[in-house]
Amino acid sequence: MKKLVSPLVLLGPALTWLGIFLVLPLALIFVYSFFQRGAFGQIVPQFTLGNYMRLFNPTVLKVFLNSLRIASLVTVLALLLGYPTAYFITQQSARWKNTLLVLVILPFWTSYLIRTYAWIVLLNREGVLSRLLISLGLSREPISFLYNDTAIFIGLLYGYLPFMVLPLYSSIERLNPELREASFDLGATPLKTFLQVTLPLTLRGVVTGAIFVFVPSLGNFFVPELLGGGQRFMIGNMINNQFLKARDWPYGSAMAFGVMAIVLILLLFQAWITRRTEQS
């Protein structure tokens, strides 16, 4: 079969589709990012680097840095919550392992929007938490827990935690259990074994998980919108604004490529780690 059907025939339809509806659109906004905005929001095909220069003005830079800060913190928290969980799952019997994994996978694929909404119900002024505090006598009046950075953290962490657990699980699961035993056998305590053997050998899972959490956290716009009240800007909101409100598409495109640059650096880092661990 290998030689009988040319792979080109098989690859053709998908690659054509991706060529037209992925490459061309990305190329288009790349070109736009060097154009100017006209007085009525139209695109004026006149070359400028101005959009990229404007990424470095203090307000925008602040949003970028704030987004990076939030995404990093979410990633670290996801790692701290996710690693022990993934580790625990690998230690279970086959049946439990499966059940626990499915329970991680389910939220992974179900509507994030709705799962974000659940937190509004929990945290808003008339919400479950606020009412609970009142009925426990811990508070006299309703408190809103929404519209602050913590709410955004929680929302992003909640949405992307499964993205961390799954790659971690698969890299820990792939680890030959005899390696840990060998380390014990050679006199290393469980803590040392974890630091010197388990963690370095699952680094790939850590990096993959971190990227899977970091990248979408960075680009997310509806969590800051819904839980942050739209006042606390992240990059996603800014791009959203340029496209749907301010109608400065060239500027918005430049912002998008700012994000893409960050993503690219991360992916290169991941490829480097992968190559390094694959060597051994």
């Binding site: 991706l18 509806f21 992925l22 061309l24 659109p25 990305l26 288009l28 906004i29 736009y32 990227i211 990248v215 979408p216 960075l218 680009g219 997310n220 716009f221 996603g236 791009i239 959203n240 496209f243 598409w249 918005g252 495109s253 998008a256 994000v259 893409m260 993503v263 992916l267």
Partner: peptide, 16 residues
């Protein structure tokens, strides 16, 4: 498409 932030893909397609 699985890894780029969906907002980037979204504005690219809108523009296109």
């Amino acid at each position: 498409p699985m890894i780029i932030p969906d907002i980037v893909l979204a504005i690219a397609l809108l523009s296109f």
